[in-house]
């Protein structure tokens, strides 16, 4: 019983703290190994504007559904400085197929490799897909787990909001 109380207390602490900090906390400046072999960091990618991070794998079915929309947003809002960073979690078993998969879809977003989930663990992206929207100053503005068809509307609204563009909801209100 004592242990259950301790766990409950911890969860409550975290929940309470999360609610008090809705403005978001800062994302750490992690080093990222890109699919093209180059190395960068999250704050380097934030230089031009906000960043949407998504964790995915070639065998993850919902990941493939959402990434089509994310690629569209990456291209649509690139002139606003917005980027999408797709962090791949394929293990050595299937990592050799990542580049072929991306090229076959002609995706333009940035792809990074995280074969033993170092980055995913630090950003809590072990459940795929997990979306993290980061403002240019590094503040995490929105997190989302999983994907159901139709949720791309909410994703785009979040991107528009962080870019200061009119969202669908605001348009309706006005």
């Amino acid at each position: 019983m004592k242990n259950i109380l301790i766990v409950t207390l911890l969860c409550f602490n975290v929940l309470l703290f999360a609610k008090e900090n809705e403005s978001g906390n800062l994302i750490p400046d992690l080093k990222i190994k890109l699919l093209n072999g180059k190395t960068t960091s999250i704050y380097d990618l934030l230089e031009d504007g906000p960043l949407m991070i998504d964790f995915w794998a070639t065998w993850c079915k919902p990941c493939k559904l959402v990434m089509k929309h994310l690629d569209t947003y990456h291209q649509t809002y690139s002139e606003n400085g917005f980027k999408v960073l797709m962090i791949n979690q394929d293990t050595p078993r299937s990592i050799g197929k990542v580049k072929s998969f991306i090229r076959s879809k002609n995706h333009q977003f940035i792809v990074a490799l995280d074969p033993n989930q170092k980055i995913a663990k630090k950003l809590n992206g072990l459940i795929m897909p997990t979306l993290i929207l980061v403002a240019q100053d590094g503040t995490i503005k929105w997190r989302h787990q999983g994907y159901m068809p139709g949720e791309e509307v909410e994703i785009e609204n979040q991107i528009k909001e962080i870019l200061g563009l009119n969202t669908e909801a605001e348009s309706k209100d006005s």
């Binding site: 050799g96 580049k99 072929s100 090229r103 076959s104």
Partner: peptide, 13 residues
């Protein structure tokens, strides 16, 4: 060993 060859949008792994 892993050799990938790309031709346009086609990829052979």
């Amino acid at each position: 060993g892993n050799l990938n060859i790309y031709l346009g949008n086609w990829g052979l792994t």
